[in-house]
Amino acid sequence: MFEAILLGMGAGLISSFLTGPVFFAMIKTSIERGFKAGFSLAIGVIISDIVLIGLVLFGSQFLKYQDSFDKYVGIIGGIFLFAVGIYYLLSRVSINYDTDPLSKINKRGYLLKGFLMCILTPSTLMFWIIVSGIISVKLDKLDEKLFCFFIAMATQLTIDGFKSYYSSKLRHRIKEDTLSKLNKVAGVIIILFASWLIYKTYHQYY
């Protein structure tokens, strides 16, 4: 069970940085429209992730498991995530500081926006397919797998909540240059995870 907690926390941490457009849309929304708007976006992202995780787990029931699945998921997924990390290192961020964060907001609208942005981002589905493959190797029981995904969602929502809260409170102190640096940090984290995944898969199967 301890391994499930570690895997879940790791997956939640990576996931909170993974979806580039959503990650920075959350910070941008919190700065421009306040904590409630940013956190509503975060909840929409979590709902989307739960749907994708359900699809991955449900869909895997119809596939005959083979060891080669882990090999292909590890190598292809690692390369894909590595490319995402490179994109993070090169992308830029822009923010409008003139909006009023205290004005009335449409929470459902931001929730729907977070849901659609996340579920329509290919890297999100790819990430959960990769995580599901890793968890299937590390954990045998279904209840442990579900608990692991629960920890991942709880970790991600906690991190997103902190991001939204502090982004709204420190809106005038958070500069575009700071977010660009944060973008690069996220890129490095994803590249390290991708490199570890490729290395682990290569040494296991070759």
Rank of each mutant, 00 (worst) to 15 (best):
R108N: 14
L18N: 01
I79W: 02
Q61E: 14
F115T: 04
Y88W: 06
F2M: 13
W128V: 08
L116W: 07
L146I: 13
I95Q: 00
M126F: 11
L13K: 06
I50G: 06
L90I: 12
L170R: 07
F80E: 01
S132W: 14
F69I: 15
A154C: 13
V51L: 13
Y88V: 03
K64E: 15
F149H: 08
L63T: 09
V56K: 05
K107T: 14
Y202H: 07
L81Q: 00
L142T: 15
S123F: 08
D177S: 15
K141A: 15
V131H: 04
S48A: 15
R33A: 09
K181R: 11
L41Q: 02
S60R: 12
D70P: 12
Y72P: 06
L81Y: 00
D67P: 12
K141V: 15
I76M: 08
S164N: 07
Y199Q: 06
D67N: 15
F39E: 02
Q61T: 15
I174C: 03
Y72V: 12
V73G: 05
I14Y: 01
F23C: 11
T121A: 14
W128Y: 12
F80G: 03
K28A: 10
C148E: 10
I198T: 04
W128S: 07
F147I: 13
N96A: 06
R173S: 11
Y206M: 12
V137Y: 10
Y110L: 10
F127C: 03
I50D: 05
I130H: 05
L57F: 14
I190K: 00
A11G: 09
G109Q: 05
G161L: 03
R173L: 11
F58E: 12
I46D: 03
L182M: 12
V188C: 05
L112E: 06
I5L: 11
S15M: 09
A42I: 02
I86C: 08
S195N: 00
D70Y: 13
F149V: 05
L116E: 08
G187K: 00
A37G: 02
I134S: 07
S48C: 09
I119M: 11
S136K: 14
S94Y: 08
T29K: 08
F24T: 01
I189A: 06
A186N: 11
F150P: 06
L170A: 09
L170F: 10
G54C: 05
D67R: 10
A83M: 08
I119Q: 07
Y205Q: 07
M153F: 12
N96K: 12
N183K: 11
F2C: 10
I53R: 05
K71N: 11
P21H: 04
F115N: 03
E144C: 10
L102K: 15
S30I: 02
F58V: 15
Y206D: 10
L55T: 09
F115C: 07
D98K: 12
F24N: 01
N96T: 11
D98R: 12
A4K: 01
K36D: 13
Y165D: 06
T29E: 04
A42F: 01
C148Y: 06
I135L: 07
I75M: 03
V56I: 13
F150D: 14
Y65N: 14
V188S: 04
A42H: 01
A37W: 00
M1C: 14
Y202F: 14
Q61L: 14
R173A: 08
S40R: 01
A4L: 08
V56R: 07
L55V: 11
S123L: 09
S91V: 10
F162V: 13
G109L: 05
G78W: 01
L116C: 09
Y202K: 03
G74Q: 06
F150A: 15
L192R: 00
